[in-house]
């Protein structure tokens, strides 16, 4: 525990490394945000697309195209909502 604590003694960081870490942190946060969205999409699209009896570990053709459509239409919905919100605000 002590050794690990000493290893992350941030006072040892140079300014350049601090800057670089900041960038890495931002990237990781974005990656995490994208993963959260994918988790949500998988949740939603599982309910809509995998409705039959589960017999194989692979997605069949129709389930796969359903999943793709599901994600695409979810994105369309997202954009449509924002667009409509825009017009509402303009009124």
């Amino acid at each position: 525990m002590d050794a690990e604590q000493a290893q992350v003694d941030i006072s040892k960081l140079s300014d350049a490394d601090k800057k670089e870490l900041n960038q890495i942190l931002t990237n990781e946060a974005q990656k995490s945000s994208i993963q959260q969205t994918v988790h949500h999409l998988a949740d939603v699209c599982w309910k809509k697309c995998v409705t039959g009896k589960i017999t194989a570990g692979r997605l069949d053709k129709s389930e796969e195209s359903c999943a793709q459509n599901c994600v695409e239409r979810w994105m369309d919905t997202n954009l449509a909502v924002l667009k409509h919100l825009e017009t509402l605000r303009g009124q």
Partner: peptide
């Protein structure tokens, strides 16, 4: 087992599409 593999496949499709 099948369900788990299927869910992961679906996750990957969703990720790629998104």
């Amino acid at each position: 087992s099948s369900c788990m593999e299927k869910y992961i496949s679906l996750w990957n499709v969703a990720s790629k599409t998104y």
